[in-house]
Design a protein around this nucleic acid. Structure first.
Length: 424
RNA sequence: GGUGAGAUGCCUGAGUGGCCGAAAGGAACAGUUUGCUAAACUGUCGUACGGGUAACUGUACCGAGGGUUCGAAUCCCUCUCUCACCGCCA
């Protein structure tokens, strides 16, 4: 949620920058400013009446104590009359507050000034390219969904039987590879100073609201209606919500957390060749990194996180590139996002394996996540997160790029985790 | 799932209708004292939203939502959560 005070003072800037996200917010911003003005006026009115009411109440108390019942009764009547009037104002104020909030929460975050314009993913800016590990594959190289069948390491049909499409069963060396990657990513994150947590993988509505999934993206999450809980689409939600309604000390920042969780996404309506195999799943594993940062540091930290993710890809010996997302491809809550994509040798295309974003105070405003500097007033913190990393496409790329006649080679960094150096 | 007890500020904890935005203690922060540490003393010490250049000031908030009353942390109702015991159970 964009800070109201910012909108109030920088109306045109907000409109201009939301245009980078291809949103014409002119009408919405005008409405918000009008509602805000009206709301404040109503608040002043209501509070004046309440103040009068409070004064009367005190006087009535005094009069009762000194036994002046008649005078007290007289004031009671006045009080009742004021109450009658103020009730109407209070309802009006509540309505205005509601309308204002509703207008604010549907507004996406303002993109950073660094965000390039553009409408489609094709307009994302390639800011880094590492082709050092580009595979030289034979013409008869197999896509991962054939490799997984050949070595019997991931069974899509079996998962289909148990749950449905998009819920694969990892088997044998495939299962061990999953576990190895999770442990590898968590160990690396710990080494980089992230504090490891295991959060719930079901979340309530408030948590979904806090990070911006609700009410906007309701349909993308699995909803457990009996208990009104949602399966997490990413660990970002439970981990960031650890800090909902908190005030942290400025010197404690940046706060760095990491978590491994399964992630669940309904992905309604996406079918076709590009979602084959591991390319798009309903359930997948991911290690997430989250930081709570001081506003002055958040962009430096975004770079640090991005470099950290790249370091993982280097260790896995994968070719990759980094994209700076254009306005049109950015998420609702993000101010600046980098996507990391690995090269998938047999599919011959780039696969997104990580998305690292700075949300500035957008999530913090919804979460009421603030920091305090000394004895100053609390200020909204900045939140950031990134995948480090999402497993399925990493696996797809590892399998495809490292396929040989003798099996699939496991990158050196992983061997101590898998316990084998080749999938046979 | 059943029964009982509870939910007050950073923490402990007092408060059963007006004098309570809330005692007291602890923690924290600042200062004084001090060779250092510790201790002692003094002061500060919730949040949000308004009004005001500011000093300051108004309103709301004692788990959440309703109700009674001129007036609610305090009484009533509903819900949520926590704890204890029982049941069930990885």
């Amino acid at each position: 949620m964009i800070q109201l005070a910012y909108i109030r003072e920088n109306k045109q800037d907000v409109i201009n920058r939301l245009a980078i996200k291809n949103i014409d917010a002119t009408a919405a911003i005008e409405e918000i400013i009008a509602l805000d003005q009206e709301k404040r006026r109503a608040q002043t009115e209501v509070e004046a009446l309440l103040s009068e009411q409070n004064t009367l109440e005190k006087q009535i108390g005094e009069l009762f104590k000194s036994g002046k019942k008649a005078e007290a009764d007289d004031l009671k009547n006045r009080s009742a009359a004021i109450k009658e009037v103020s009730k109407g104002y209070e309802d009006k104020l509540a309505k205005l507050e509601e309308d204002l909030k509703n207008a604010l929460i549907v507004l996406p975050n303002i993109p950073s000034t660094m965000v390039p314009p553009g409408k489609t993913p094709e307009e994302n800016e390639v800011v880094f390219l590492n082709e050092k590990n580009m595979p030289k594959l034979a013409d008869d190289s197999l896509p991962h969904w054939e490799l997984t069948a050949k070595y019997d390491i991931i069974d899509f049909e079996l998962g289909n039987k148990i749950a449905g499409a998009g819920f694969p069963v990892y088997k044998g060396q495939g299962a061990k590879l999953q576990r190895a990657l999770i442990n590898f990513f968590l160990d690396q994150a710990s080494k980089a100073g992230y504090y490891e947590v295991q959060p719930p993988i079901l979340i309530n509505e408030e948590s979904g609201f806090g990070t911006g999934q609700l009410p906007d993206k309701e349909g993308q999450m699995y909803h457990v209606t009996a208990d009104n809980l949602y399966l997490i689409p990413t660990a970002e939600v439970p981990v960031t919500n650890i800090f909902r309604d908190t005030i942290v000390k400025a010197e404690e920042m940046p706060i760095k957390y990491t978590a491994y969780t399964p992630c669940f996404r309904r992905e309604a309506g996406s079918y076709g060749a590009h979602v084959r195999g591991l390319n798009r799943l309903h359930q997948f594993d991911k290690v997430e990194i989250v930081q709570i940062a001081h506003p002055k540091d958040s962009y430096a930290i975004l770079e640090e996180m991005r470099n950290y993710v790249c370091s993982l890809l280097d260790l896995l010996e994968l070719p990759y590139r980094t994209l700076k997302l254009c306005g049109g491809d950015m998420s609702f809550a993000s101010a600046l996002t980098y996507d990391m994509e690995v090269w998938s040798g047999a599919q011959k295309r780039w696969l997104e394996v990580s998305s690292v974003s700075n949300f500035e105070s957008f999530q913090a405003n919804r979460l009421k996540l603030r920091y305090r500097e000394g004895n100053d007033k609390p200020v909204l913190a900045h939140t950031l997160n990134g995948s480090a990393l999402a497993l399925p496409r990493i696996v797809a790329s590892l399998l495809e790029n490292n396929q040989t006649i003798d099996g699939i080679r496991i990158p050196a960094a992983l061997v101590s985790y898998t316990g084998f150096d080749t999938i046979k």
